[in-house]
Lab assay of single mutants.
Amino acid sequence: MAASAHGSVWGPLRLGIPGLCCRRPPLGLYARMRRLPGPEVSGRSVAAASGPGAWGTDHYCLELLRKRDYEGYLCSLLLPAESRSSVFALRAFNVELAQVKDSVSEKTIGLMRMQFWKKTVEDIYCDNPPHQPVAIELWKAVKRHNLTKRWLMKIVDEREKNLDDKAYRNIKELENYAENTQSSLLYLTLEILGIKDLHADHAASHIGKAQGIVTCLRATPYHGSRRKVFLPMDICMLHGVSQEDFLRRNQDKNVRDVIYDIASQAHLHLKHARSFHKTVPVKAFPAFLQTVSLEDFLKKIQRVDFDIFHPSLQQKNTLLPLYLYIQSWRKTY
Results as ranks from 00 to 15, higher is better:
residue 296 D to P: 01
residue 332 T to E: 12
residue 92 A to R: 03
residue 93 F to C: 02
residue 70 Y to C: 06
residue 76 S to T: 11
residue 231 L to W: 02
residue 226 R to M: 14
residue 244 E to C: 03
residue 147 L to W: 01
residue 61 C to P: 07
residue 279 T to D: 15
residue 203 A to W: 01
residue 329 W to Y: 10
residue 177 Y to D: 05
residue 69 D to Y: 01
residue 224 G to M: 11
residue 75 C to W: 09
residue 284 A to D: 01
residue 105 S to I: 15
residue 277 H to C: 11
residue 297 F to A: 05
residue 222 Y to D: 05
residue 227 R to H: 12
residue 50 S to K: 07
residue 227 R to G: 10
residue 54 A to R: 13
residue 155 I to E: 00
residue 282 V to E: 08
residue 82 E to L: 13
residue 255 V to A: 12
residue 300 K to S: 12
residue 320 L to G: 03
residue 76 S to E: 01
residue 107 K to Y: 11
residue 79 L to M: 13
residue 143 K to D: 03
residue 182 Q to C: 13
residue 117 W to M: 05
residue 126 C to W: 10
residue 201 D to E: 05
residue 241 V to G: 02
residue 70 Y to W: 08
residue 149 K to L: 05
residue 115 Q to A: 13
residue 113 R to P: 05
residue 277 H to P: 04
residue 246 F to S: 03
residue 184 S to W: 00
residue 168 Y to M: 07
residue 129 P to Y: 09
residue 283 K to V: 11
residue 67 K to S: 08
residue 138 L to G: 02
residue 222 Y to R: 08
residue 144 R to H: 06
residue 303 R to Q: 11
residue 177 Y to L: 03
residue 333 Y to N: 00
residue 95 V to T: 13
residue 137 E to D: 07
residue 175 E to R: 03
residue 262 I to Q: 01
residue 87 V to W: 04
residue 271 K to R: 13
residue 98 A to R: 05
residue 117 W to N: 00
residue 99 Q to M: 15
residue 127 D to P: 03
residue 258 V to P: 02
residue 98 A to N: 05
residue 157 D to V: 11
residue 145 H to D: 06
residue 125 Y to H: 05
residue 271 K to N: 12
residue 156 V to R: 03
residue 303 R to P: 01
residue 125 Y to V: 03
residue 121 V to M: 07
residue 145 H to M: 04
residue 266 A to E: 00
residue 73 Y to Q: 02
residue 169 R to M: 13
residue 249 R to T: 09
residue 269 H to T: 01
residue 73 Y to M: 08
residue 317 N to F: 09
residue 170 N to R: 07
residue 139 W to V: 03
residue 45 S to E: 06
residue 99 Q to V: 08
residue 282 V to S: 12
residue 283 K to M: 11
residue 175 E to P: 02
residue 153 M to H: 12
residue 184 S to Q: 12
residue 264 S to T: 09
residue 121 V to Q: 01
residue 109 I to R: 07
residue 322 L to E: 00
residue 99 Q to G: 15
residue 65 L to W: 02
residue 153 M to Y: 12
residue 275 S to E: 08
residue 46 V to S: 07
residue 207 I to V: 09
residue 312 S to C: 12
residue 272 H to G: 07
residue 96 E to V: 08
residue 247 L to N: 06
residue 223 H to M: 14
residue 149 K to G: 04
residue 293 S to Y: 09
residue 304 V to M: 06
residue 209 K to E: 02
residue 147 L to R: 01
residue 130 P to M: 06
residue 206 H to N: 03
residue 203 A to N: 01
residue 53 G to Q: 09
residue 103 S to E: 13
residue 144 R to Y: 09
residue 287 A to T: 05
residue 178 A to K: 00
residue 256 R to E: 02
residue 120 T to R: 03
residue 148 T to I: 03
residue 152 L to S: 00
residue 240 G to Y: 04
residue 176 N to S: 13
residue 65 L to D: 00
residue 117 W to E: 02
residue 142 V to M: 08
residue 187 Y to S: 01
residue 319 L to F: 09
residue 156 V to C: 08
residue 204 A to I: 00
residue 203 A to K: 00
residue 134 V to M: 07
residue 125 Y to W: 08
residue 247 L to S: 04
residue 128 N to T: 15
residue 135 A to E: 00
residue 277 H to Q: 13
residue 222 Y to N: 09
residue 193 L to D: 01
residue 238 L to M: 08
residue 171 I to C: 09
residue 215 T to P: 00
residue 220 T to S: 14
residue 60 Y to M: 07
residue 321 P to G: 10
residue 113 R to Y: 05
residue 201 D to A: 04
residue 298 L to W: 05
residue 238 L to R: 12
residue 114 M to W: 05
residue 58 D to K: 14
residue 291 T to A: 08
residue 66 R to F: 06
residue 91 R to S: 05
residue 174 L to K: 01
residue 87 V to M: 11
residue 125 Y to T: 03
residue 78 L to M: 09
residue 234 D to M: 00
residue 317 N to S: 12
residue 118 K to T: 05
residue 78 L to T: 09
residue 55 W to R: 14
residue 211 Q to P: 00
residue 231 L to N: 01
residue 303 R to L: 11
residue 285 F to Y: 13
residue 61 C to I: 14
residue 274 R to A: 03
residue 67 K to T: 09
residue 47 A to Q: 09
residue 180 N to K: 10
residue 275 S to Y: 06
residue 255 V to R: 07
residue 141 A to Q: 00
residue 258 V to S: 04
residue 307 D to M: 02
residue 302 Q to A: 09
residue 134 V to A: 09
residue 69 D to K: 02
residue 157 D to C: 14
residue 258 V to M: 05
residue 91 R to Q: 08
residue 220 T to D: 00
residue 95 V to R: 03
residue 51 G to L: 11
residue 72 G to N: 11
residue 249 R to K: 09
residue 313 L to T: 05
residue 115 Q to H: 10
residue 298 L to F: 09
residue 272 H to T: 14
residue 252 D to I: 11
residue 295 E to S: 09
residue 298 L to R: 03
residue 137 E to I: 01
residue 294 L to H: 04
residue 249 R to P: 07
residue 54 A to W: 10
residue 229 V to F: 10
residue 280 V to G: 02
residue 121 V to H: 03
residue 228 K to V: 12
residue 190 L to N: 03
residue 327 Q to L: 08
residue 162 N to P: 03
residue 98 A to W: 04
residue 237 M to A: 15
residue 330 R to E: 04
residue 248 R to A: 06
residue 127 D to V: 03
residue 201 D to W: 04
residue 72 G to F: 09
residue 186 L to I: 13
residue 50 S to Q: 06
residue 128 N to L: 13
residue 212 G to V: 02
residue 119 K to G: 07
residue 113 R to W: 05
residue 210 A to S: 11
residue 261 D to K: 10
residue 112 M to F: 14
residue 198 L to R: 04
residue 267 H to D: 10
residue 186 L to C: 09
residue 270 L to I: 09
residue 302 Q to W: 06
residue 198 L to G: 04
residue 330 R to Y: 07
residue 241 V to L: 08
residue 55 W to P: 15
residue 127 D to L: 02
residue 165 D to H: 10
residue 322 L to D: 00
residue 212 G to I: 02
residue 217 L to D: 00
residue 66 R to K: 14
residue 268 L to I: 11
residue 247 L to M: 11
residue 123 D to N: 10
residue 89 A to Q: 01
residue 142 V to L: 06
residue 239 H to S: 03
residue 111 L to F: 15
residue 323 Y to F: 15
residue 93 F to Y: 11
residue 307 D to A: 03
residue 193 L to F: 08
residue 158 E to V: 10
residue 118 K to M: 06
residue 59 H to E: 11
residue 45 S to K: 04
residue 80 P to I: 02
residue 136 I to P: 00
residue 215 T to H: 10
residue 267 H to C: 14
residue 242 S to C: 07
residue 120 T to I: 15
residue 228 K to E: 11
residue 309 F to A: 04
residue 232 P to F: 02
residue 179 E to T: 02
residue 314 Q to E: 08
residue 309 F to T: 07
residue 245 D to G: 07
residue 315 Q to M: 14
residue 160 E to P: 03
residue 130 P to W: 03
residue 323 Y to T: 14
residue 80 P to H: 06
residue 239 H to F: 02
residue 50 S to F: 08
residue 225 S to D: 11
residue 68 R to I: 06
residue 93 F to Q: 00
residue 258 V to E: 01
residue 172 K to C: 10
residue 64 L to Y: 15
residue 175 E to H: 01
residue 118 K to H: 09
residue 251 Q to T: 14
residue 286 P to E: 04
residue 96 E to I: 09
residue 73 Y to H: 04
residue 291 T to S: 07
residue 209 K to S: 02
residue 176 N to D: 12
residue 75 C to D: 03
residue 280 V to K: 00
residue 234 D to P: 03
residue 133 P to K: 10
residue 67 K to N: 10
residue 289 L to K: 04
residue 205 S to L: 06
